[in-house]
Design a protein around this nucleic acid. Structure first.
Lengths: 162, 162
DNA sequence: AGGGAGATTCACAAATTTGTGAATCAGGCG
DNA sequence: CGCCTGATTCACAAATTTGTGAATCTCCCT
């Protein structure tokens, strides 16, 4: 079965839209998905621009954003001047771990509200305390979850996809 | 110890800022935090507006958004005309479960890209397949995690907060 | 019923975000 | 050594999002 560019483009756009709805910036989401489904060797900025129908400048901005998140990297160029961008294999893993720490900082910031409320018996303090505990719990569990994933992944190392 | 409104307001704003950075709309985030730390009985739209320094209209919009997410509800009014808004106790739990299903739909949308690529041996198909598997794994694990949290929560039912 | 407090909605204004074109920079190749 | 392809940055334009004021609606209370 050959590459169905039409259907692929649709899938890329739809996936990017889901990411966008989840709060991810639009152009980075599209670039990310394009790189995800790309063949070995990554894509150049020009290729990305053409495939997504946007200017080189937009690509550059999106690429900078994604690099700052540490989920893509520039390929050690084969020899030509063309810079190739490639997604890290563990990008999603990393992204989730990063989001996890966001949960953590959120919990710690909110914990300050408990002190400000003063009375630990009050509804607000109780409610806030529960939320803080919840996110601390989630944050604490996440490493475990990721370890489990790694184990699973290693187990089915060269097994077929999907 | 009495309520330190100054510090409380700061904590509310900072927590809201963290949520905003994570992709949550600004005003809903602020309203959510204000309701989180509120005393028993919730707050009226007017109280929210005053406490956050914004117009009643802005509150109304934020409240509609939060209600659509199912994380706040209008209190069965005591008798007065004033509508009181209150956060659900399991709001965060619910929110995470909801976000979880976002992961799921993302995975399923992206899975379509694999078919479009055709060759399952290609780098793109392998990479995408791995991502899909990862998010399916996370989605599958989440219920377990939440169950565990419920158990923990029930265990320390009337234990002190924080 | 009528008055009035409060919530909600609407059209518009402000502000932030997003994408573009033109200019600039970088470095491989003739 | 200088041209030429391609990446990057900048200032600005477009567009989407966000918040406001005024008008409208709701419904309790007399």
């Amino acid at each position: 079965m050959a590459r169905d560019e039409q259907a692929l483009s649709t899938a890329v756009e739809q996936s990017a839209a889901v990411l966008t709805a989840a709060g991810f910036p639009k152009m980075p989401a599209r670039v990310l998905m394009a790189l995800l489904v790309a063949d070995e060797g990554g894509l150049t900025a020009a290729e990305l621009g053409e495939s997504l129908g946007v200017s080189a400048a937009a690509i550059s901005g999106a690429v900078r954003y994604l690099r700052s998140l540490g989920i893509i990297h520039r390929m050690p160029h084969p020899g030509s001047r063309r810079e190739r961008w490639e997604i890290f294999d563990d990008a999603w893993y990393t992204a989730l771990a990063g989001k996890n720490s966001v949960y953590g900082t959120f919990a710690e910031t909110a914990a300050q509200a408990i002190d400000a409320i003063g009375d630990p018996e009050s509804a607000g303090a109780r409610r806030t305390g529960e939320m803080v505990a919840f996110f601390r719990f989630i944050e604490g569990k996440m490493p475990e979850l990721l370890t489990e994933w790694e184990a699973l992944r290693a187990a089915s190392a060269s097994a077929p996809v999907e």
